[in-house]
């Protein structure tokens, strides 16, 4: 089956191909005999911003945990970038370029904002103790590059002034910005954002939305859980609706809004 056969019409023509970077196929996940996810399938097109929406208890967060390897894949199949994630530890999936964030922002509180951004880059030469002791010049050179990159990132996200502050001293909104800036330091192919705008004011939500759209311009794929349908409407090309652990509908926001089951299960109740 050609993946493009199912590709949705895009409101904004993507510069990249329409092959899916992530395919979730018939995934079922149970906790103690109760299915939190039940035969759920969807895909995320490369270079798209896809929103995962649905009422509380629909299984969205469980899905994020399964995709990112924090829960082992029990049944079904998940392909990221053409490869199955089955049996992979969370860090192995992350190393392949799938970087997730968490629903509650989880900063490294006792580390400075800048140091927070210095952690995610993958395969740092200085993470190997052999290099630390016997090739210190390589470590020093890479540190300098990473600091430059991190400061640029902080600048983009308006946190440059805060670089020397402890992350725990930031406000809730600043922590959201830090979370996104930090995730980008890992050079992801795809970002999995778990409610990136939960609990932020509307002005900051707009800013975060703008950042997410900028990422797409740089060829990044984003899958985000989001409750604010206004934002979803504004930035997402594809929308996947989950309810009771399975996919209820897929399509553009316009299509979703007219979907009768979605209206009764989700939009109508909201």
């Amino acid at each position: 089956m050609s993946p493009s056969a199912e590709a949705q019409p895009q409101p904004v023509a993507p510069a990249t191909t329409t092959a899916p970077i992530l395919r979730v196929e018939h995934v079922t996940h149970a906790f103690g005999g109760v299915n939190a996810i039940n035969d759920c399938s969807f895909e995320v097109q490369t270079g798209s911003i896809t929103a995962l929406i649905g009422p509380n208890g629909a299984g969205k967060s469980t899905m994020v945990n399964v995709i990112s390897g924090f829960y082992p894949l029990q049944q079904g199949q998940i392909l990221f970038d053409g490869q199955s994630v089955r049996g992979l530890a969370a860090h192995s999936i992350a190393q392949r370029g799938l970087i997730r964030t968490f629903q509650i922002s989880r900063d490294y509180g006792a580390m400075t904002v800048l140091e927070n951004l210095m952690v995610p880059p993958k395969h740092q030469v200085g993470e190997n103790l052999f290099n630390v002791f016997f090739r210190p010049w390589l470590v020093a050179r890479e540190e300098k590059e990473l600091v430059r990159k991190a400061l640029d990132m902080l600048n983009t996200f308006g946190l440059y002034e805060k670089r020397e502050d402890y992350a725990r001293s930031l406000s809730g909104g600043q922590k959201r910005l830090l979370e996104m800036a930090r995730a980008l330091m890992a050079d992801p192919k795809m970002l999995l954002l778990d409610e990136p705008m939960a609990g932020v004011n509307p002005a900051l939500a707009d800013r975060l939305a703008q950042h997410i759209m900028d990422l797409r311009g740089k060829g990044l794929t984003v899958l985000m859980i989001e409750h604010n349908l206004g934002i979803v409407d504004q930035i997402a090309q594809d929308v996947v609706v989950m309810a009771n652990g399975t996919t209820l509908a897929r399509g553009t926001m316009v299509e979703i809004r007219s979907h009768p089951e979605v209206i009764s299960a989700y939009l109508g109740g909201a």
């Binding site: 924090f70 860090h91 190393q95 490294y108 140091e115 952690v119 993470e127």
Partner: peptide
């Protein structure tokens, strides 16, 4: 940087795992 990664694991092991 090795020590930095250790500190990050101390602060939040899940997050560091999520960064590979």
């Amino acid at each position: 940087p090795f020590g930095r990664t250790l500190r990050s694991i101390r602060e939040d092991q899940d997050v560091s795992e999520a960064f590979g």
